[in-house]
Simulated assay, not measured.
Amino acid sequence: MSTPNSTRLLKYYEALNEGAAQAMSEDHRVFMMGLDVDDHKGIQGSTLGLVEKFGAERVFTTPLSEDAMTGVAIGAAMAGQRPIHVHIRMDFMMLCMNQLVNIAAKSHYMYGGTVQVPLVVRTMIGKSWGQGAQHSQGLHAMFAHVPGLKVVAPSNAHDAKGLTIQAVRDNNPVIIMEHRLLYSTESYVPEKPYVVEFGQSRVVEEGSDITIVAISNMVVEAIRAAELLSAQGISVEIIDPVTISPLDSATIEKSVDKTGKLLIVDNGWLNCGISAEISARVAESEIITRRVQVKRLGFAATTCPTTPTLENAFYPSPKSIAMAAMNLCNPQSSWEPNDAQCELAYQKQFKGPF
């Protein structure tokens, strides 16, 4: 029998569900809205059972009208409620950019601190069975660019629950970016409510030869790549920023000062992306005392493809991450992991957060 303080393995989607449920039990002002949140599949399981537990007045579906429904959520937040608005796909948050960027993010400032917008937006990114150009984009850099918006990217179930509860308690709009390929991964998660603080990076694995900063699902890919590199004698330090904005760059800079080599792996385009921001902060750092080699991996400057073959070339993978890291550590090396090694690495389950 488990106790309220016990820790057990939960899947990512189960942790999102539990975080929301505990936040709703803790505060009657919290409600959930969004397209199909009360569907029998429950947004890949992340909202299952919530309508039965809290009723249709606190968990309800919305029309397919992102702009209008985001306005409803912002208005409710201004009026003292604490909505969790599920957008499902980040791609379609473009339809409510004015609401998020000009209203939600700015109202606290424009009204002299008298207005708060405690809004949580859940949204998914990432490839999976050919999501293609309009259903797979990671647009987190756009939102992180805007003062007043917080952007978090849990890479494991532990952080998914803790960041959800922290986001609900925060008095500012928070965007939770969830990668669809993480939904079935497991981590050890406490039963009782807890928070994962914003603005604190995590050292996932310690190493001495190269620092890999990985965003969202790329943390899992980087861990797999580190296994391949370890067999070649390369010691990798992996850092998960956890939150995109606010970004804890001090932890990254401290690691880079140790290793002298930095590889940033993102779930978005390289141009003007979060990888460029991290690179700039490293370049401007007053912590780093040595010359640093930097490389970035992310999306090429083209639309996300649909077919699996092109997806494999488009998205960073354990193989491409390992080869890029090896190139930084040993430019003369011609090493390339074989496909069988990479396939075996993919089968290993991420237990995070370490």
Rank of each mutant, 00 (worst) to 15 (best):
G298L: 00
M323Q: 13
A300H: 13
T211S: 14
V152R: 06
E253C: 05
C96D: 01
R296H: 10
E191C: 10
I288M: 10
Y315M: 09
H140F: 15
D257Y: 04
R82M: 05
L163R: 05
R122C: 01
M110E: 05
K351T: 14
A105T: 07
E277D: 13
L310K: 08
Q44T: 09
E178S: 10
V151I: 12
G130P: 02
P193H: 06
A23F: 02
G298I: 00
N102P: 05
V203H: 09
I244M: 03
Y194R: 12
H40K: 12
H28S: 11
P190Q: 02
M78N: 09
T289I: 00
G126E: 09
W129K: 15
M69T: 14
T164F: 11
N267V: 11
N312R: 11
E14L: 02
K258Q: 12
P246F: 05
K106W: 02
D39E: 05
A15R: 08
R290K: 14
R82T: 06
G130V: 08
I215M: 14
S46K: 12
V204W: 03
A283Y: 00
K348S: 01
A79D: 02
Q99W: 01
E206W: 13
L64S: 05
T251K: 15
E14S: 08
E221M: 14
D266S: 15
D38N: 10
A144C: 08
R169A: 11
C342G: 06
A325L: 08
V72M: 04
A324C: 12
L270W: 02
N338S: 07
S2H: 13
V59S: 03
A214W: 05
S6K: 08
R291E: 12
L35N: 10
A301S: 14
P4S: 00
V294Y: 01
Q200N: 13
H87D: 02
S334L: 08
M69A: 06
V115H: 02
G132F: 04
S235M: 03
P318D: 08
A340H: 12
R281T: 08
E336I: 13
A276N: 10
S107R: 02
D67T: 04
E14C: 03
T7L: 08
H158E: 09
P308L: 05
L95F: 07
T114P: 02
S2D: 11
L10Q: 11
A280W: 07
G298T: 00
G207R: 05
F350Q: 15
K258V: 10
G233Y: 04
R296E: 06
S187G: 09
Q44G: 05
R296I: 03
E205G: 05
R290N: 14
V30L: 09
S275T: 15
S2C: 06
T123D: 04
D170Y: 04
I103L: 11
I84S: 05
Q347S: 09
Q137L: 08
V189F: 06
S235C: 01
I165G: 01
